[in-house]
Design a protein around this nucleic acid. Structure first.
Lengths: 125, 125
DNA sequence: ATCGTTGCAAACTCTTTGCAGGATT
DNA sequence: AATCCTGCAAAGAGTTTGCAACGAT
């Protein structure tokens, strides 16, 4: 028989911080925000719940260069991200908005692309 | 007094694998290739020498999403990279070749961008 | 009462560092 | 001979896992 998930305050807190953040969060960001709701919530619980939420396709991992993976609510349409050089926070960019014409080496085939913009967010400007 | 660097066969082997690879290498790739030249060369020596070569600006780190940092010989002009979905190897793309027009949120400033193409290399096609 | 979930601590992986022996100058 | 560098093993950081206690059903 399939497991019967239970609603714990920790789980609920974790889902709510992603819903309210409006941007992708790291494990540490999710921990800090969740602990404001449930005191003593542990980092292991963050890792476990994020992994479950990714398997359930409620969250999607956002892998970025040179920094830990962020997670965002799944199901958004194709888009890219902006990272602030100062605070490190990740933000969504609207739409894809990219055209590229790089020459591939012979015999290479393309399946997708990723794009990141760097700069200063409005708070750090 | 500044330290007087010495030429060891390990250092020479590490520099040669980057010179001959023609693409950015991970620590593990550099280890495997270097051990074909100097038997028993240790992973600590790889880490130490890569760090030194980066400080000397002979190598540049190439940070990529969701995978360990690669290193390439420094001084190339602005370019981006292709990663093979199957073997994970990273390859250079010629020129930048990107135009983008994503809308930034209000008050955000841009300082740079990164771009990655994914697909299959000629060996894995 | 059952059994899914949590917090803690131990285990793992990746990277860095201390140290004694070995190699280069 | 002096001292830089290497290999080994231990130490750190980030992530996962085992386990006993807790808590939702």
């Amino acid at each position: 028989m399939a497991i019967q998930p239970r609603n714990t305050k920790q789980k609920e807190a974790i889902r709510s911080v992603f819903t309210e953040a409006g941007r992708p969060l790291s494990h540490d960001e999710a921990l800090t925000l969740s602990q404001e709701i449930v005191d003593g919530l542990s980092i292991a619980t963050i890792y476990r719940n994020i992994n479950v939420l990714v398997e359930e396709k409620w969250l999607s991992p956002v892998e970025i260069p040179g920094d830990t993976t962020r997670y965002e609510i799944a199901g958004k349409e194709h888009h890219h991200h902006f990272q602030c050089n100062t605070c490190g926070k990740l933000f969504d960019l609207q739409g894809c908005g990219i055209e590229w014409k790089a020459k591939l080496p012979k015999g290479f085939r393309t399946t997708g692309h990723e794009f990141f913009v760097y700069g200063l967010c409005s708070t750090c400007s």
